[in-house]
Amino acid sequence: MPENKNESVKWDAQLRKGTLELAVLAAIHKRAMYGLEMLNYFHLFDTMQITEGTLYPLLDRLKRERLLAASWQQEGEQRPRKYYSLTKEGHQKLNELKARWLRSVEDLQQLLNSPTIEEGHHYE
């Protein structure tokens, strides 16, 4: 069982390579979030168990690509936090990636439902 679990985690990591960017854009498309807040939010989802070492450099890259804007904010006694929000380009990118993602889910779904699989046909 632990081996299976391990395999799943690897698969999740592989899959996330392309989708994490979409996940970040989606997470903050309604309101700005700071890193830890975003991380805790992702951790609510089974397949989104990412680490700090993955998230922060990604945020930095997206900011460099002008998809995100960042600003330091301090509330009361709390230490200052860097909040990320979507720029106009970020919103556009989110829509593009979202459309592409939905298309890819649809395609995969069709492949999975394809009768050739059910009937056990193999293509050489």
Binding site: G35, L36, E52, Y56, D60, R79, P80, R81
Partner: peptide, 14 residues
């Protein structure tokens, strides 16, 4: 400095 500050803030927040 900003990168370091952000990470420092995260660590102490946790």
């Amino acid at each position: 400095q900003e990168v370091v500050k952000e990470i420092e803030s995260h660590i102490y927040d946790v």
